[in-house]
Design a protein around this nucleic acid. Structure first.
Lengths: 237, 237
DNA sequence: TAGTGGTCTAGACCACATG
DNA sequence: ATGTGGTCTAGACCACTAC
């Protein structure tokens, strides 16, 4: 019933830091002192403090000790859901309509390795047959050879990619933009209407996987990002 | 020079999973087998696998073993920078101009504890004296009593809060919206012009800290979110 | 019920940065 | 020089759950 000791140590310090009882810059007891206080081995204390360090709540410095972090560069976890799943979760019917598919040399739009081939896929996402997102996507065929055989007539490329291609790095740009003429046509809104623009590029190792630019109808879609404390530190790939 | 053994175990499996050599659903060796393969103790193996599980790359199930995760609910880390710092980092001058400050009873806008007092702060962010964001903010005075004494005439409340109030939970909504009349006036754009709207609410434990709604001029600002793999799992507060 | 991961111990050696 | 964290060992007991 009672939580593991290491977890109790971790959560106790978490609470004391978040409450302000332990101020930023303040020094925590050493591992040796905590062993005595909690009557446990050093490994247990070490794991608890390491977890706090991974969460960004403390910083650990050799020969100096462990210190409460200054309030950090705040970051949040932004869920990037599969549009098809998200629409379905709302109880609506998702449909993807392919508008254009062609293969071209890389280099255009600064995407893909020199000399490689790039698959371009333009399409429209509809919820209950109402268009809500216009999507332009590029995929590096060399990085994802299987994609050449997939029929995207009604399957959204993003849905397929999320299920088949693991990635380890991504960058997303989020902006607002008035709909230009052709995009306004596809989204069935007046030109100049506000749209939410999401551009995302993903990599696996040093290979670009895909670049996508999505225009969302402002009245049909918004993004929600939840929760914070920074992500765990990771070693370089 | 050589990396710690546990880290080598971790990164080896990370690479094999990301490359696809280990497919989703595939079972990893048991801890006992890995002890033999790497000639190390069980703790070392366990820590490496736990790190992979924290990163979401594998799932560990008692009595069954460790398995490569299905490509996950994809999430990214969205940096929510201090606007003042961000503008300064671009080499521009940031200025905040307070428009309205008053204290009211909670309950309005579904913010704050019943009966408590809420500080409302409206203001304008300017970069090189050009307005780029109109901000409406509510702060729970009971949760942040110090704020009553701060002069926000030119100091952005977000900057102060980020430096003084730790939080452990937040939710952000991002949308596009045509500027309404008064907001268009403050941002010095035509009504109906696309703006990026960011709404964020933060908590410490069960206390609401602040709710903020920011309208950004689309031509002056966009958000950038970087990198992925989900954040470390955390215990409830 | 037996195999698996979850946690913990009581040591140990080492690297490192600070005093 | 020395105290600190980083890592590792070779065990151990337990909880859980799939078989």
């Amino acid at each position: 019933m009672t939580k593991p000791l290491g977890e109790r140590i971790r959560s106790q310090f978490e609470a004391r830091i978040l409450s302000g009882e332990l101020a930023p810059g303040e020094r925590l007891p050493t591992e040796a002192e905590l062993m005595q206080q909690f009557g446990c081995s050093r490994m247990t204390v070490s794991k608890a403090l390491s977890a706090l360090a991974d969460a960004g709540l403390i910083e650990r410095r050799k020969r100096a000790g462990s210190f409460v972090s200054r309030p950090r560069v705040h970051s949040m976890v932004l869920d990037i859901p599969d549009l098809a799943e998200e629409v379905a979760a709302r109880g609506q019917t998702h449909r993807y309509r392919l508008i254009r598919r062609d293969v071209s040399e890389a280099g255009i739009a600064h995407f893909g390795p020199a000399g490689g081939q790039v698959l371009a896929l333009d399409g429209l996402h509809l919820a209950d047959n109402v268009p809500f997102a216009f999507e332009q996507r590029l995929v590096d065929i060399a990085a994802v050879p299987d994609i050449a055989d997939v029929d995207f007539g009604h399957l959204a490329p993003g849905s397929w990619l999320l299920r088949h291609v693991p990635w380890d790095e991504a960058e997303t740009r989020i902006a607002a933009e008035g709909a230009s003429g052709s995009i306004a046509d596809w989204l069935d809104v007046e030109p100049g209407t506000a749209t939410l623009v999401v551009e995302r590029r993903t990599w696996r190792g040093s290979d670009s996987i895909t670049f996508v630019r999505q225009h969302f109808r402002a009245d049909q879609y918004d993004l929600v990002a939840r929760f914070g404390q920074r992500s765990a530190s990771r070693a370089p790939a």
